[in-house]
Amino acid sequence: MNNRYLIGGVVILLFVAIAIYSFNDKKVGYSDIETASTSGETVQVSGIWLKEMQTEYNSIDNIFTFHIKDDNGTETKVIYEGAKPNNFELADKIVVKGKFQEGHFQASQILTKCPSKYEGKEEDVYKS
């Protein structure tokens, strides 16, 4: 084994280690609403949009407000500084990234799980 390969190997391993370390450091974990509201950490929460609750995009301040319910059935108001995502109404699931602040979830990012394919349902076969 040549010394140079050894050095090279060490450098690569070091790089990999740094990558894993900083990935682990900067990661955003998944959580539910209840845990997120007590921990106050930046997390990713997924839930369904509550259509009947207030859903409003304020284009003057560029703030989008809506409500979600997670798998445990906990509900929360979400405030997102930004526009309503393009396919918000179509999404069957909403993933919000952010943290709890003053009683609501302050989102820094919204992922809308829009099926680019909309799974057909039985009743649709008749309708069409």
């Binding site: 990558a19 900083s22 990935f23 900067k26 990661k27 955003v28 974990g29 998944y30 990713q44």
Partner: peptide
């Protein structure tokens, strides 16, 4: 626990 990577990490590296 499951978690995701912030996209900026890719740029940084």
């Amino acid at each position: 626990e499951k978690s995701v990577i912030e996209p900026q990490m890719y740029d940084q590296f």
